[in-house]
Nucleic acid binder design. Sequence first.
DNA 1: TCCTTTGTACACCGGGCTGTGTACTTAACG
DNA 2: CGTTAAGTACACAGCCCGGTGTACAAAGGA
Lengths: 199, 199
Amino acid sequence: MGPQGRRRGRGARERILSASQRLFRTQGINRTGMDQLCAEAQVSKRTAYQHFAGKDDLVAEYLRRFDPEVMAGVFDRTDLTPRERLLAAFELPASGSDELTPLCPYIEAAVEIHDPRHPASQYARDYKLALAARLAAAAREGGATDPEQLGEQLALLLDGASARTRVLNAESFPTAAAIAAVLIDKALPATDRDRGSEG
Amino acid sequence: MGPQGRRRGRGARERILSASQRLFRTQGINRTGMDQLCAEAQVSKRTAYQHFAGKDDLVAEYLRRFDPEVMAGVFDRTDLTPRERLLAAFELPASGSDELTPLCPYIEAAVEIHDPRHPASQYARDYKLALAARLAAAAREGGATDPEQLGEQLALLLDGASARTRVLNAESFPTAAAIAAVLIDKALPATDRDRGSEG
DNA sequence: TCCTTTGTACACCGGGCTGTGTACTTAACG
DNA sequence: CGTTAAGTACACAGCCCGGTGTACAAAGGA
């Protein structure tokens, strides 16, 4: 119910969004009420609704905030060959060694929202396509025979690992990584395995 | 809210469960209220709560009912070689040609329920393990080098296709099938591709 | 200093949800 | 026929949720 003792002042919007990240990811979207979210953000409910038109709006903005941060760490690593970059995408994201990888927030949103026309569902779709495109770009750089196909395949593996980790309550990324290795070895020319095809 | 005109009589429990299948699959679990469900089942709300302790109970039972029906069609086909059976698991399930494959109900439940200790989550986990085991059994029958690994890999592909179909709002099973073909060809001995290793 | 912008406190509304109480009706079976 | 199990109709309790109205307090630039 907002900040009871100390005033928290000006950074309301940012606090709301970062509280969203914490709560939506750990509890899910539907199970997180606006009251709890405002309490976590130390923001009054009124303020929240002055910054966001509604919960839907907040959810959409929460998803939009993921785009930059998620994939940048992997794809911008110029020290790795394309092949290594593709494989690095399957290393456990932000691996707190005893915690499970949480379900991809876009899949979570798509399942919880369930309306394909909802802005959040649009963002989810856009993100997934963008990620596949990035994978395809790295695949092309590595000299893959059919980069788009490999990108889509690897993206599917990531989604599978994420969903399966949630259902089984056990880490599934290593399995996905093993499949990815097979696909990459098959699609990338053997001579370029340790070196990009860039000339 | 229940049967307004005609009385429907004795088959209440079955009608409730089959209405669950229709509504939970098309709308999701949380978005389907007991009122709507009872209306669809043409059953009074009171009757529903005489058959099930609560909605949680109904959801658990709804999931339990899937076990026999889903995989039986594929794995019992003795006319197919093990390799063909493994591949058949990736053919679009119940393909209404213009409709998307709905999200696997166990993934749906695991995401919507979100509590790993909930009976529904248990069923989901059990089902996923059982399916992987069935795939592994077929893989073993086909002479795979590491049947358990192949089973787990194929199961992950199915989950990935299911989740990604939902997020992208576009069919992803063909992609998964292509990956499956690669994995199967790699794991099954070439001489046994058209014939089981049974002797 | 004053005034605008931002945030606060808190009660409250309407609606949907799960679940129940009660009195009644019907179908099946002996 | 009579008895009993199954189902019905419907109102209603209680809860939580998203969202709002109102009156007030503080920060910060001019």
